[in-house]
Amino acid sequence: MTDFGMTRRSALALLSTLPVSFIGREVFAQAIASLAERAASEDPAVWYESSRPDQGDQVIAAFAKAFPKAKVRHESIPGGNGVAARVTQESMAGARTADIVTVGGGETTQLLKANLIAPQDFEAYGLDPKLVFSKRAVHTAVTVYCIVYNKTLVKKKPAGWDDLLDPQYKGEVGTWVRAAALAELSRAWGEDKVMAYYNKLLAQEPMFFNSAAPLAQSVAAGEIALGLGSYHNSLPPMKKGAPIDIVPLDPSPMSSVFSFVASKARSPATAALFISWLCSPAGNVVYEEATDRGTPLIAATKTAKFVAGLPTTEWPLDNKEPYAAIFEKMNRMVANVTVK
């Protein structure tokens, strides 16, 4: 068996779930096999992403099984904006930076503006066109905001947004200090309605958290009864048996995460190959298993099943300015909360 044969088989396996004809699959497989051949002669590609190192290792190990000759190194950098800042700093200084970047929509927009994202014909590698934004960024995952509640403390399962404003939970509600969920919600509700809602939520004297992960843990511990959390951050304590559950919202705000090849990439073929794999059904399922977040645009993911049938809302990648403006106003509202 030749190396090329193995690469081609990996490529076909990667494409096996695509709803395209046999001939179409063959064309994509050849494109990926050719990409893999080029990747084999490149240095290891560096992937900047915010998951933990062990989660990154899990993803890289699966990729290495599919494409043993292409090497990728995961670099864990806390926070999407930390990743974007690092890429910007390194690029400005002319230093070695990431080849592959995975960040949120806001950061993607900023890096697009700074010309730090390389164009790439991902569709030629068999990626579903609805995943690809402007031949540059590929939809990789979402943060879906939802209610997380403690089943012991909340007797009646919450139904939706109004439950967070229920006076009986005053002082026992939690929210992420970053008002991303409500800023995304403003696309569906409009600014006035969202601002009015946020004012009422602040009147509930909520506990604020630096991330939705400790929020879910505080709900599990019983320090707060319920909170505006996120699906993937609530899963770890739920999987371990914590007495919590999640309730989808109507509408459900989401924040998308994208992957792309950095314009200063030194291993562009490896980067394109990795993203093509990561955002394929096979790769995205692995990514979701490792990080609990996947893209709802791939039916095989649990995230797709969770989101199925839900009315979702999110500011699109090419129109993030209103999101940023409302986010800024909410930051100011939080800053003016009087501490008792």
């Binding site: 904006n81 930390g82 970053r178 930051n331």
Partner: peptide, 11 residues
């Protein structure tokens, strides 16, 4: 907060 929760997504 300025570094991690900026509205513009860059610190």
């Amino acid at each position: 907060g300025l570094a991690h929760n900026p509205p513009e997504s860059l610190p």
